[in-house]
Design a protein around this nucleic acid. Structure first.
Lengths: 258, 258
DNA sequence: TCAATATGTTCGCTTAACCTAACTTTTAGG
DNA sequence: CCTAAAAGTTAGGTTAAGCGAACATATTGA
């Protein structure tokens, strides 16, 4: 890792994240928008930008456009990954509603270590995709959360077992869910796949390896640009933009939708 | 709820929690111990105590012993419940090691809403006790986390399915795991039970109901005093101290150890 | 083109939380 | 009983984060 410990305050992390998102959405981050999102006075934004500029995380000069330095963008993405990992976990695993999940993620993102985030991402994937009853089981939990009061425990447990039996029986032959070997460049947005092999040892291969991506990791295709060239994917909670040729070098197995 | 929004800062929450724990451990909370635990200067402790006294959360007078007011104790317990719920979740569900789990819980405890904590507690219980493969399944996840690199994905999934089948087959008769109907007052420390019925409508019954405890909720017996009288239990993450006679009025089904 | 409005900055002030150093009170040993 | 050490407090300073008001610069539409 090139990144030394920057030790950003929660507040500065929030600014950085907001700037990153605004740039992604509006191409440019204006002071008043930052202020609006963070519910602070515009003069506070100026102060924060100066603090970030001192740390070489943003390019700032009075009245000019604000951009992120490479270090700033990297830091912002770290925060964002934590945010998304937490939010997704809360929504998908704990069945918390979107608004509350986001609000919680927003506060928790400053408090969790990398280990915990990694584990959360892995857990959510495990639950969603384990060919065992994982997926259905978690749906059962969500159901139970909504109906907790209305449904006596015993009945729930019995249903639970039935579901599990059904599920496992129907999946006794693991490879049965028709999966197709292909390459990452051939997938459409929203599709999900499992990585089989990464060709080459170029910078992308290394970047991917750095994330702890092993052979079986999941990939979600987030967005594909008009000409199919930059392909935005999400692996282990990390957003990644790949050139079409790079994506073509990654052999994957297409999976059923989540 | 009698509690109005006290809106404590993270810092003050930490002080409150520490004081509560110190009183529980040493019967009295000394300034230097608070300072040592929170890694702050003793003069900072004085400042914090004054702030807490202003909010009527501690009884404080210079050079005197510090105690918690009822409001302070209640606030401290709320924080502690969040802490324990997070820590237990991290350890039991995500297989994070104890030290890191605690450090994370310590920071996260200021960031999570009640809804999320409730859900985390419920989830951990669900995973640990659902008669489906829950318990074993989660052990499988822990195993996978440790051996992730060493174990190819495919093999893991296959093993996963086998486990599930075994587990479910062995539990096809849900009531089969020999459970015994008894009363809460008869349990020993470390034992776990499921609540069947709560007799009476006294203050304890109401206190328990306020926690969202329904018929099927789990109880963990934490500590039983020498003469079996105050019985400390944990329900839905809440610590509760019951008189023997109160505990006798709660019918439970003893469960196998976690 | 140029004034009105929107946007951004600076200045001065507040609060919370911490620190160090110097002081006071308590405690405990001889 | 009386004094050193330990424990606690006060005073004064620092830093981060915020605010409002006044000032500066851009933008834009008539």
């Amino acid at each position: 890792m090139t990144a030394r410990e920057q030790n950003l305050s929660e507040s500065l992390e929030d600014y950085l994240e907001t700037i990153f998102l605004l740039i992604r959405e509006h191409a440019v981050a204006r002071s008043r928008d930052i202020a609006a999102r963070l519910h602070v006075n515009k003069s506070s934004v100026t102060g924060a930008l100066q603090a970030l500029a001192e740390r070489a995380l943003v390019n700032y000069e009075p009245y000019g456009y604000v951009t992120l330095t490479p270090a700033g963008a990297a830091a912002a993405q770290k925060v964002l990954r934590r945010h998304e990992a937490l939010r997704d976990f809360l929504v998908k695993v704990l069945s918390i509603d979107a608004a509350e999940a986001d609000a919680n993620a927003c506060r928790m993102e400053h408090a969790v270590s990398k280990t915990v985030v990694d584990r959360l991402v892995e857990f959510a994937e495990f639950v969603e995709t384990c060919p065992r009853a994982g997926a259905k089981w978690i749906r059962g939990f969500g159901y139970r959360c909504q109906e907790a009061a209305a449904m006596p425990e015993k009945k729930e447990c019995a249903r639970c077992i039935e579901q599990c039996l059904d599920e496992v029986k129907s999946q006794e032959t693991p490879g049965a869910t028709k999966t197709v070997s292909t390459t990452l460049s051939k997938l459409k947005p929203g599709e999900r796949a499992r990585i089989d092999k990464i060709a080459g040892t170029g910078p992308v291969a290394r970047r991917i390896a750095d994330m702890g991506v092993t052979k079986g990791s999941l990939v979600d295709v987030v967005r594909v640009a008009p000409l199919g060239d930059p392909i935005d994917v999400k692996i282990k909670g990390y957003h990644l933009s790949l050139r079409k040729e790079e994506a073509a070098g990654i052999a994957v197995t297409r999976l059923a939708q989540a």
